[in-house]
Design a protein around this nucleic acid. Sequence first.
DNA 1: TATGAATGAGACTTCATTCAT
DNA 2: GATGAATGAAGTCTCATTCAT
Lengths: 229, 229, 229, 229
Amino acid sequence: MFVKKEKKGGTPSRRVPAQERSRKRLERILEAAAEEFDEQGYESATMERIAERAETSIGSVYQFFRNKEAVFLALARKIGGTLRAVFDVVVNEEALKAPWEAVIDAGIDAFAALNESDAAFRAVWRGAFLTRQVLEESDALGRELAGRVEVWLRTAAPHLAKDKRALVSTMIIEGVSGILLAATWRGGDEGRALMQEAKVMMRRYLAPYMSPPAPGAGTRAKRGAILKK
Amino acid sequence: MFVKKEKKGGTPSRRVPAQERSRKRLERILEAAAEEFDEQGYESATMERIAERAETSIGSVYQFFRNKEAVFLALARKIGGTLRAVFDVVVNEEALKAPWEAVIDAGIDAFAALNESDAAFRAVWRGAFLTRQVLEESDALGRELAGRVEVWLRTAAPHLAKDKRALVSTMIIEGVSGILLAATWRGGDEGRALMQEAKVMMRRYLAPYMSPPAPGAGTRAKRGAILKK
Amino acid sequence: MFVKKEKKGGTPSRRVPAQERSRKRLERILEAAAEEFDEQGYESATMERIAERAETSIGSVYQFFRNKEAVFLALARKIGGTLRAVFDVVVNEEALKAPWEAVIDAGIDAFAALNESDAAFRAVWRGAFLTRQVLEESDALGRELAGRVEVWLRTAAPHLAKDKRALVSTMIIEGVSGILLAATWRGGDEGRALMQEAKVMMRRYLAPYMSPPAPGAGTRAKRGAILKK
Amino acid sequence: MFVKKEKKGGTPSRRVPAQERSRKRLERILEAAAEEFDEQGYESATMERIAERAETSIGSVYQFFRNKEAVFLALARKIGGTLRAVFDVVVNEEALKAPWEAVIDAGIDAFAALNESDAAFRAVWRGAFLTRQVLEESDALGRELAGRVEVWLRTAAPHLAKDKRALVSTMIIEGVSGILLAATWRGGDEGRALMQEAKVMMRRYLAPYMSPPAPGAGTRAKRGAILKK
DNA sequence: TATGAATGAGACTTCATTCAT
DNA sequence: GATGAATGAAGTCTCATTCAT
């Protein structure tokens, strides 16, 4: 919660360099853990290899984290922060003025970019079901993100019934996640094509929710079904 | 003398039981394994607990399966069979005469039902990424299912460009899977609502692909994007 | 102790073919065990593979032998019989008339031939130290063979002090065994050359014991040592 | 930071201890292993009992050695070192000036002493054939020792045909080994008497090779054989 | 008697975690 | 604090032996 800062001005205390080193070490550990979890999966990852990758000792890792799960949770929280930052950019005041399709596209692109660049993101996204604690943590994260989407929908989709907002938000987050997962393990062009198509899917899914309801009809999908008969 | 063992080669099954009692034991083991994998996840599941749950000895489990991975693979294959059977019902000759929306709905309902009733299905769907071998196996299964969908699309969506069929098929399978995963760990009414909404999402996503293209335009989504500018 | 024979004359009883089959099976098991022990070593050999090689069931093996060690002991005893037969040929009445060098050569050749042709011999000779029981058995065998040699020496080396006969006999058996072991694992020409040289070694070692002592001197070797000074 | 682990490649040692306490622990483990292997034989020896005997934990044993075979190999190498040291004493420059019989006697005495005092020596000497890797290692050791003997023979037996030196060296090593093995499991006075007699055997075997060939004849043995006809 | 499925003790090995230095 | 050696619980897997059919 609190980012420790140097207290007071004046001569830098002796402890500053120590704190500095400590912070760097923590960062190295988290980075190492992200790579290890990403490559090996949660259970196959070992604390020893994490320490090695971080070029520190196993003892130091335990100085920062109670146990293995705590390391994973720290990654999950870090990713939570990153995602919040991403959302701050994608779904901000300014974004509300942009066409909703652009917001969706930007969001999906941001997700894809994160997935490509951030081992921690991949590790957490894939390892979400591994332990009860982790599942709860990542569930909470998912709900938080859905909450952000919900807030956005309030403005962007004024005609969407209030009690459907949560559902639709979850659909967006989880639908994109599903495709992202598939895209990750397929990789390459196939993966990228999937992410592009995810935009198409989401645009079509959301379109009817974003416009005022057509007079005398239900959803477009239903109308389509009727028309076919 | 007759039923002989398979050797090596990634095959899961070590001994094919001929006797009644053996067959029952094998079934108990698979059932126990499904529950254990479902509850604990692949890595946390232990062979000993599987044996315990099956009310048999660890030795018996190893009489049927070379190792832990082989047990999981057997489940994956079993689920593969079940899914094939489901597809035989949902996407058969008869289905081609039904409206495509009905086929999608039926497919999603079948998936949801399977997910709710079958621990093996849940375990496999969730544990797909855990080992190279398992990933390959379940990837193959995913591709096979997508292939089935592709065949269906050939008739049901005659206007869909041939080279997009594979992509769209994968989107259907993986998009639904993603929602299914989320629905599973949320459970209850929330889960069921998600599965219902998945139908809406898929109907809307597919509708433009199923109808003849609107004159003078590409996909609706693209046109929509263009119009907004 | 007793070789079961058909009782009485007349119509061959119904059980005869069963006994016949049984005897054959026992032989197959012993043969299979010999090969398995020879190839794998005592501990790595498994009862299951022995049964497989004998084309019978593990249950049948246990019909004949209380446990694994008993199988090995049976082989040791069988080899004992073979060796006795060999000695009956090499060191018999007739042999006493032949020059002692010829007897030694014939004995070593017989050992080498046995080692080359008989898996059981190799297995037992190599596995002699594996368990207390086996060691005792093969020790007993070694002593028995040495005993035979001793009897031969009584006639062939009349000038050898009575109380040295046991020692010399043991030296012959164990010295040749040592070379045989080395020759076995080296194999090929190198192995054969070693066995030939073993004859040279034994002839030279025994020569002074076989002739009347040179007047005014100890063993030739000692004299040699004296001469060198 | 400094002393780093070796990776793979058949090497036995996993961690080279720098600290005093560690070094002692490693020594205790090796000592315990020697006793365990000596008493139980390679296959029957268990890592757990080795740990117990060394009064340490199974984990510590695995910190030093990758697996059971690595422990055995470490013993084999240690013995290799000991034997090299012994040979440095027995077959050095000085020794070349002594009568060859004295060298042989000293060598056999040294072997016997080692066998009596060193459990590792007994274990290795007896367990040499047990696994491919171990066999190769101890074969290499045997050949090295034979090589040393060969070098000695070059000077000590100038009349011995060059191409027989290797054979004769092997005979010395393996012949003595065979007697040593027998002496070990017989033990006590009988064992000691065997080792003494081994000296006699080797002196007689080697004598003809050490002196200039008798004029107009091959080896004495051959001549003897010829004369008998 | 023959069979081979079932059993479970016990071996090897890994790795999260602790703790002395 | 930092280090990494030590620990031992727990997991995987094998195989000698038993026993129901």
